[in-house]
Computed example of a mutant assay.
Amino acid sequence: MCRWLAYSGSPILLDELLFKPAHSLIDQSRHSTLGVETTNGDGFGVGWYATPASPGVFRGIGPAWNDRNLVNLASTVTAPIFLAHIRASTGTPVQETNCHPFRFQNWLWMHNGSIAEFARLKRDLVLGVDPGLYPAIEGSTDSEVMFFLALTFGLRDDPPGAVERAVGFIEAVAAQHGVDHSVQMTVATSDGTRLWAFRYSTVRQSRSLFYSTDVRALRELHPENAQLLQVSDEARLIVSEPLGQMAGAWNAVPESAYGVIQEGQDLIAGFHPQRP
């Protein structure tokens, strides 16, 4: 499986998220405590929005802890939205086109988890992708197919509903092939303005996912922490594993739920796949 983080808030230097925390994503790439694997070294990627319409992406096939270009990038790129991912392959090749986040137009997508017996299901799943979208698929992962199914089912208009329909379609195809417990996922996706995160598995035992406590509440709990004064009230993180041990900072995303980080009131709601 993999580890990831997503940030939305006031513009921040990528280095502050990727390298500086005590249990940063780079530390997790070697010493994951909540993942299926301790080491996540099968590639990495970061995506960011200089403008909502134009996300940048940098991906590499080596381990994140040993990439000098990533260090240089992280020390110079500032943005209000970041998606960062370290990969542990579930069987597909280690190649750049299989590294997350995936991009289509102004949308970014990354995933931790798997579609069970993907090789058996792949043909029928890919046939569910809109023919106009199919040429944009570059890699061979289940994660990218899930992204393009979500796009097919209306991600650009209704993200929660589209992901519910995509997951329902995957579960229906899996049932036709006699595959049980087909979906395991935590997903983050963004259009450059809002950020959505999903936690779900068919067996209802999903991989770990956490969101950060409201910054205003954290300032009251930890008035000595100068870093909390450097970010806006809107700043929020969603992570596979907490980045540190600050008391009161992290909250588990409920099972079978999704959240939206946006200007104003954020939202957490139930996630219910819709089969065709």
Rank of each mutant, 00 (worst) to 15 (best):
W109Y: 13
V129A: 10
L151R: 01
F104I: 07
Q105T: 07
R123H: 11
A174W: 11
W107L: 08
G161H: 09
D157M: 05
Y134W: 06
V173E: 12
E138N: 12
I170E: 01
Y134T: 09
L133C: 02
R123Q: 10
R156F: 00
F148H: 09
I137S: 11
D157V: 01
Y134A: 13
R123I: 02
L127N: 15
G113C: 09
L133E: 00
L151F: 01
G132Q: 14
D142M: 09
V145M: 03
G161Y: 13
V126I: 14
L125S: 05
T152G: 03
G113I: 08
F147L: 02
W109A: 02
D157P: 00
V126L: 09
V163H: 00
G139S: 12
S114N: 10
T152Q: 04
E138W: 07
A150W: 00
G139T: 12
L149I: 07
R156E: 15
L155Q: 04
R120A: 11
Q105H: 12
F147D: 04
P135E: 13
V126R: 06
L149N: 06
E144K: 03
A166E: 12
D130P: 01
T152N: 04
R165Q: 15
I170W: 05
S140H: 07
S143K: 12
G168R: 03
A116M: 08
E144T: 02
Q105S: 12
T152M: 06
E164T: 00
G132A: 15
E164Q: 10
G161T: 08
E144C: 05
F153M: 15
V129Y: 11
L125I: 06
I137E: 08
F147I: 01
F153A: 10
T152R: 02
I115M: 05
F148D: 08
E144P: 06
A162G: 03
S140E: 14
L155F: 04
E171R: 05
F104R: 14
D158G: 06
P160H: 08
R120P: 00
F169G: 09
R165C: 15
G161S: 11
N112G: 05
A136R: 11
F148C: 02
D157W: 01
D142E: 07
F147T: 00
L133G: 02
E138Q: 15
L125H: 06
R123N: 10
T141R: 14
A136Q: 13
L151Q: 02
F169R: 13
R120S: 13
E138Y: 07
T152S: 09
T141Y: 14
W107T: 07
E117M: 08
K122D: 13
G154C: 15
E117K: 13
F169I: 08
L125A: 05
S140Q: 11
L125T: 06
M146P: 00
A172Y: 02
D158F: 12
G132N: 15
A174V: 10
I137R: 11
A172D: 14
P131F: 01
F153K: 13
R120C: 03
Y134I: 02
E144N: 05
P135A: 14
S140I: 00
G113V: 09
F169K: 11
E138M: 15
V126F: 06
F153C: 10
D142F: 09
I170D: 01
V163Q: 01
V173M: 07
S143G: 13
P131A: 03
V167L: 06
F104P: 09
